[in-house]
Design a protein around this nucleic acid. Sequence first.
DNA 1: GTCTATTTTTAGCCTTAGCTAAATCACAAG
DNA 2: CTTGTGATTTAGCTAAGGCTAAAAATAGAC
Lengths: 226, 226
Amino acid sequence: MGESTAAQPLSSSIGDYVKIIWELAGSGAASTTEIAARLSVAPASLTKMLGRLQELGLVSYERYRGASLTERGRAEALRSVRRHRLIETFLLEHLGYSWQDVHEEAERLEHAVSDNFTERLAEFLGHPARDPHGAPIPGADGVLAAEDSFPLGEVMAGGRVHVTRVHNEEAPVLAYLGERGLVPGRSLEVKEVRELDGVVTVEDEEGVSHSLGGPLARSIFVRLLS
Amino acid sequence: MGESTAAQPLSSSIGDYVKIIWELAGSGAASTTEIAARLSVAPASLTKMLGRLQELGLVSYERYRGASLTERGRAEALRSVRRHRLIETFLLEHLGYSWQDVHEEAERLEHAVSDNFTERLAEFLGHPARDPHGAPIPGADGVLAAEDSFPLGEVMAGGRVHVTRVHNEEAPVLAYLGERGLVPGRSLEVKEVRELDGVVTVEDEEGVSHSLGGPLARSIFVRLLS
DNA sequence: GTCTATTTTTAGCCTTAGCTAAATCACAAG
DNA sequence: CTTGTGATTTAGCTAAGGCTAAAAATAGAC
């Protein structure tokens, strides 16, 4: 007995739980209500599940204290994230999905693919480092590249920046940004950062100007161009 | 109420049931025990499920009489078959899976993909008419091409034949035939059909001779070359 | 420090899709 | 027409993963 050698199939939704906890908690702890909200599940359902995840050795959890991932839980989460991001890349680059549609389809597929499939897909895609949203894809060895960019909302006026990532999963936001070409790989000139309401005004390579309010400005991650 | 307009997600294993009944029964009726065996499920579990499938309007079923598909059941089965065969084609042609490994992976993926994915994949693959085993792929409109070939075991000696299909899902059989190049597209010369034990001896394009016993000879489907 | 509002947990129930063991049916052989 | 055997069904159980309503703990406001 004991949970020891890992790697039984691991019923599909368990992957969702650890992935959400990973997104929510990073290294800290995630609250029951937050996790429940992300999974569209009643808070009461969480308690039982967190207990189960703890028995499996994936989270460490104390009553009324929220949950955080164990080392194994983090590894499991990164495997899910890798699958998800590789699948998104495939859907977008090869099947012609739109930027805002990939997430939902990938979410379902992610539960069905084997590690063998995942690695063959990575090979097929040429081992991409980032997915279509610019999110880094964890390696097969579980290593995730450190984020070296920051939200557009935090930038100062007057510089040129390079969009590295759009950190948002809501379809309307993605559709909006996609239509305007505010996607990873683009260069922008920061014209104004208005303290008052956090609106950032940028100009793209074609000279078109865009004004982006808080939520959008926080979704676009950029790196400064030297 | 009523089941009317179809197309709710349709819990994953329901697809398996109709697909197996379709394979087993064609137009006739399939027995409880046969279906159970194919699904690796206890015969007792079938009764409940067949009742459910009947409520859903997918099979028609009378106690102690076996089950057969309704028109809607047949359509559902063909959708599953289409998904399955397209996925197999993708795994083999683009991800480098071996002939004998595609089935298992496709079986799992099949439950996770949307119709949107399926049609985009068909497009990506160039709308293939047959899968890697030579099985015809039902159209998006639910039309399945009629089988125009027959088992090698039924052929007469002396003719040339064209392999159109390998009708067998057992990995060792596929591996054996794959290694020897006895795959769809190949031409063979039938040297001998021995009444005594049903062994068929053929010679391939490179002059190599193969002797195939009943199970293998029944798995290889061929068309006569004029 | 107390008290109230918000979180979180407990208790008990539901559904799905399985299982085993026991009963029942169908059919073919006498 | 009876009977035995194998196929099928019924009955009752299990485990996951949900739910609601009610109870308990925490934390923030005074």
